[in-house]
C-alpha cells in the first residue's frame, strides 16, 4: 500500500533518517496500519462537514499588552550549541 519510494519521500518531508533495513520495515508497518485505516474509505461521507475541533468557541484573542520576556541566558540555557548570543546551526545554504 505504501512503497519504498513513498516511504523515503515521507521520511524526507518529516526530516527522519531511515537506515536501509528501516525503510523496508517502515513500509511494511505503515502498510499494515493503512490497511486498517482504509475502512473509512467505505463510508459515505460526502455531505458531512469536517470536524477539526470539538471546541465551539471563537475569538479568544489576546489583548496587545506586553508580558515579560525570558532572560537571554534562560532562553539559551538548554541549547546544544550557542554562539554570539544565539543558537548555532549549520548554515542552511551550505
Amino acid at each position: 500500500m505504501i512503497d519504498r519510494d513513498e516511504v523515503l519521500h515521507v521520511a524526507r518531508l518529516a526530516r527522519l533518517k531511515l537506515d536501509d533495513g528501516e525503510v523496508e520495515s517502515m513500509a511494511r508497518e505503515l502498510s499494515g496500519v493503512l490497511d486498517h485505516i482504509a475502512k473509512i474509505g467505505e463510508l459515505s461521507l460526502d455531505d458531512v462537514p469536517p470536524t477539526s475541533h470539538v471546541v465551539e468557541v471563537v475569538g479568544r484573542l489576546r489583548p496587545d499588552e506586553p508580558r515579560p520576556c525570558l532572560p537571554r541566558e534562560v532562553a539559551l540555557e538548554q541549547a546544544p550549541s550557542v554562539s554570539d548570543g544565539g543558537f548555532l546551526v549549520p548554515s542552511p545554504q551550505a
Binding site: 485505516i37 473509512i40 474509505g41 463510508l43 461521507l45 458531512v48 462537514p49 469536517p50 470536524t51 477539526s52
Partner: peptide
C-alpha cells in the same frame, strides 16, 4: 482528502 479530510468527517459522525 483521502485520509485527513475523511477522518475529520468520521469525527463529525461520531460526535
Amino acid at each position: 482528502d483521502a485520509y485527513y479530510g475523511r477522518a475529520q468527517r468520521v469525527r463529525t459522525k461520531i460526535v
